[in-house]
Amino acid sequence: MSENPIILMERVTRVYKSGSVETPALREVSIRLAAGEMAAIIGPSGSGKSTLMNLMGCLDVPTSGLYEFDGREVGKLSSEEMAELRNRSIGFVFQSFHLLPHATARENVEMPLLFGGMAAKPRRERAMEMLERVGLAPRAHHLPTQLSGGEMQRVAVARALANRPRVILADEPTGNLDSRSGRGIIELFRELWKEGVTVVLITHDLGLARVCPRIMKIQDGRIVHDGADVPVEDETVEEAIRSDPVAVTSVVDSEARLSGWTKVLRSVRGGRGVRGTRGLEPVRG
């Protein structure tokens, strides 16, 4: 693993404007990710995970702060240069796959190679190679509608890998998959990481996050945790859900989305906060 940062963010802020209303999605986020690292970004809905991934993937530019991808300041790149950077250095895997519905699996995988200017024959060969890698070579001529969710996501992974990018950014890659398909995808990411590709997973799934050696938690647009483990409070909630899913889920449904796990637990424990599941009273009515 190299220590050179491939992703360097310093005090990055992203504010969305709708008329005169400004909504900050990221607030002064600083991240340093070395080439070859595998990291998970966790956080509740609306915390800014996807915004962070969009910025990391050069799909968007920060409102303020510095973002350097592999030593190049993204804010100073033209749209053409950004496109080229995305094409050559970044592979995206989206929760909803974003495959071209009227293109076959192979044509979908060929797409980034085409935009990279590769000739037809090597392009076809590389696409088949990538499909083989994800175990889908026999389904190369199927349309996405003829594939299962797991297979579609594997096509998306093959497409992300096609240009042999330095970074794979995956936004909830197992969100729409059953557990078996999800495990297959995670295994694939681990293999890539072992081969030296930088992998960033954005997920709600703590189990998936634990696969990564580095876990960052984002909340209200700020990085609130950056370490090797899942934050303690999240583990607690997870355990609480395991022990009494009805009790916690009802609270999660009503409050958690906006306020985050800690607040949920405070409400469950009567405002005292928790460090464990002991004493956690089920919420009734």
Binding site: A83, F92, H98, F115
Partner: peptide, 16 residues
């Protein structure tokens, strides 16, 4: 538009 967005995400230049 969505398809265009996907293509741009994976590296299509505006000219494409």
């Amino acid at each position: 538009t969505r398809e265009i967005g996907m293509q741009m995400a994976i590296g299509a230049k505006p000219t494409v």
